[in-house]
Structures are given as structure tokens and as C-alpha cells.
């Protein structure tokens, strides 16, 4: 009896002590954090599933053999995996040479985008000139009015490119894209100019003042000092530009760029080419080849993205896109 009372007293004392409250609060916080973590985990897994599921489906299907594709018991994991789909797709897409040309085209256009857009962004960020506000408004107009709106005039411009009656037909070549990009009107150039403008505005003015005092010319200040310091913005724009240019269908369709330059255009015709070449008439099987083609086409850009991904996200955070 005595013992129990003592215990009870000790408990009472503990319950009113600050220690007890600290413990309760800690436990409550732990529980709250655990539940929040669980909630976040479930949501993230769910959303990731929606994003990744079609990708996983396409990748595994590309290994399906004919039996697997017919067998209703096979779901996602093939029983008799085969590499034949890849062999055929590689062969009929003429994969490596065309991929090389595509990467050259995309890389070249990206370098042009970086050069021109950073220059324009810098000009807007650091120099004062008449009509600056109005002209920057035009950059926003370029973001808001997509190129899709002027698709047909663009087509006409490059179908009959030149002055007066001296015109050349630039369709089917990569020149329209290159010319447009070189004049700051490429794919989403407005957005890139905006990003660079925001970034350069965030850099301290003292750097250039020092350069000016030391007698550096504006061009040297820009190429020698500002551009090397702009790596976060450059990475951001480079990733956007590579990914969007590679996946672009607007320029490809409008200017009918030849499929010996663009691998994504080759993909469009892959099913028909394989179906005719290999005498495959069931849609189900044609699709298997197509899956392999999609994987092959996506692979380079996914690899590039994964390599640059960490620096890309840091770049977005530091480049003051949002600033």
C-alpha cells in the first residue's frame, strides 16, 4: 500500500514537472513528423508511378518476344525476352549516323541560342537605351505569342527565302532553324532571353565597373568576365534548349526538315518501314518494334539530362529565373 502510494506520488510529481511536458511535446512532434513523412511518401510514390509507369511499360515491352505479346498471362516482365526489336530498330532507323547528325544539329542550335540569348539578355540588363522598356515588352510578346501562331508565314518566308525575285527554297534543310535562332527567334528564345536578363540583373554591378576602370572594352567585359560567371544560367538554358530542341516537332514539321537529320522524324516512319521491310502485319508486333525505337530515341536525351540534372536544378535555383 505504502509502495503504491509512493509510486503514485512520484508519477504525480513527474506529471506536473516540465520534463513530462517536454517529453509529451517531443512525442507529439515525432508522431506529427512521422505522419507527415508518410503522407508525403505516399503522394510522391503515387505521382512517380503515374509518371514512370508508361516509361516502364514501354521499356519492358520492347523486350517482348512474339509469344510474350500474345500471352495474356505476361504482364510487364517478359518470359522469353529478345533483343531482336532493338536489332531491327537500329538497322531500319539507321540509328548511329542519324543520331550523330541530330546531336550535331541540336548542339549547334543550343550553342547559338546560348550565345545570342545571353547577349541580348545582357544588353537589356546592363545598358540603358531609348525605348528599352518597349523593346523588353517585345521579348515578353515573343514568350506569349507562340511560334505556332505564325507557322504558315514562317513556312512561306523560308519557302521563298531571299529578296525580290532571288529566292531559294530552304525547306528540308536545317537552315531555317539556324537562321531563326541566330536572330534570336528560335524555339522559346524569348524565354531564354528573359532567363539571362534576370540572371545578369542579379550580378553585382561592381564587377563591370572594375573592368571599365581597368580599360576593358564592352565586348571583352561581356565575353571575358560576365559570360564565364553566368554558368548557372548557361546550364539552365542549355538543358532546356537541348531537351526542347531534340523533342521539337514544330520546326521539324513546319520546315519539313529531312529525316536524315532528325532522329525523331525517323521514328515517325519506323513502324511503316519495319512493317514493309520485315513483312510484319500485326499491329501488336509492330508496336513492339516501335517501343524499341522510342527507347533508342529517348536514351540520349535522358542520359544528357541525368548527367546535367543536379547542376541544372542548382542552376535554376541560383540563376534567379524567378527573381
Amino acid at each position: 500500500m505504502e509502495k503504491t502510494k509512493k509510486k503514485l506520488d512520484a508519477w504525480q510529481e513527474f506529471r506536473t514537472s516540465p520534463k513530462y511536458y517536454a517529453k509529451r511535446i517531443r512525442m507529439r512532434n515525432n508522431l506529427k513528423n512521422f505522419l507527415l513523412g508518410l503522407f508525403r511518401f505516399i503522394i510522391i510514390v503515387g505521382i512517380s508511378y503515374v509518371i514512370l509507369a508508361p516509361v516502364i511499360g514501354i521499356i519492358t515491352q520492347s523486350f517482348f518476344s512474339r509469344q510474350d505479346s500474345i500471352n495474356p498471362m505476361v504482364f510487364t516482365i517478359p518470359i522469353n525476352p529478345t533483343l531482336e526489336r532493338y536489332e531491327m530498330s537500329l538497322k531500319y532507323m539507321d540509328y548511329l549516323p542519324i543520331l550523330g547528325r541530330t546531336l550535331l544539329y541540336v548542339g549547334g542550335v543550343t550553342v547559338l541560342q546560348l550565345l545570342i540569348c545571353s547577349m541580348v539578355g545582357y544588353g537589356f540588363a546592363r545598358y540603358n537605351f531609348p525605348f528599352k522598356k518597349l523593346l523588353f515588352g517585345f521579348v515578353v510578346v515573343m514568350i506569349v505569342v507562340p511560334l505556332n501562331t505564325i507557322q504558315f508565314p514562317l513556312y512561306v518566308t523560308f519557302r521563298y527565302f531571299g529578296i525580290g525575285s532571288h529566292t531559294v527554297n530552304l525547306l528540308k534543310t536545317p537552315w531555317p532553324t539556324i537562321i531563326l535562332t541566330a536572330f534570336g527567334c528560335g524555339l522559346r528564345s524569348g524565354l531564354y532571353i528573359y532567363i539571362f536578363n534576370q540572371f545578369f540583373r542579379g550580378l553585382p554591378k561592381e564587377i563591370e565597373e572594375a573592368a571599365l576602370v581597368d580599360g576593358a572594352s564592352p565586348w571583352y567585359t561581356y565575353f571575358g568576365i560576365m559570360l564565364p560567371n553566368a554558368s548557372p544560367a548557361i546550364i539552365t538554358v542549355a538543358v532546356f534548349s537541348i531537351v526542347w530542341q531534340y523533342n521539337d516537332s514544330f520546326f521539324a514539321n513546319t520546315f519539313n526538315i529531312s529525316d536524315s537529320i532528325l532522329i525523331t522524324r525517323k521514328l515517325d516512319t519506323l513502324i511503316n518501314v519495319i512493317a514493309n521491310g520485315e513483312k510484319i502485319y500485326t499491329i501488336r508486333e509492330q508496336q513492339l518494334y516501335f517501343n524499341a525505337g522510342v527507347v533508342l530515341v529517348l536514351l540520349p536525351v535522358v542520359i544528357i539530362y541525368l548527367l546535367l540534372q543536379r547542376r541544372f536544378i542548382e542552376g535554376v535555383e541560383r540563376s534567379g529565373i524567378v527573381g
Partner: peptide, 11 residues
């Protein structure tokens, strides 16, 4: 302003 225009000229 001349320099500014030089930078944005291509665009």
C-alpha cells in the same frame, strides 16, 4: 545606348 543596341541588335 549605342552599346546596348549593339548587344540586342541580332534579336
Amino acid at each position: 545606348s549605342v552599346r546596348g543596341y549593339a548587344f540586342i541588335l541580332p534579336w
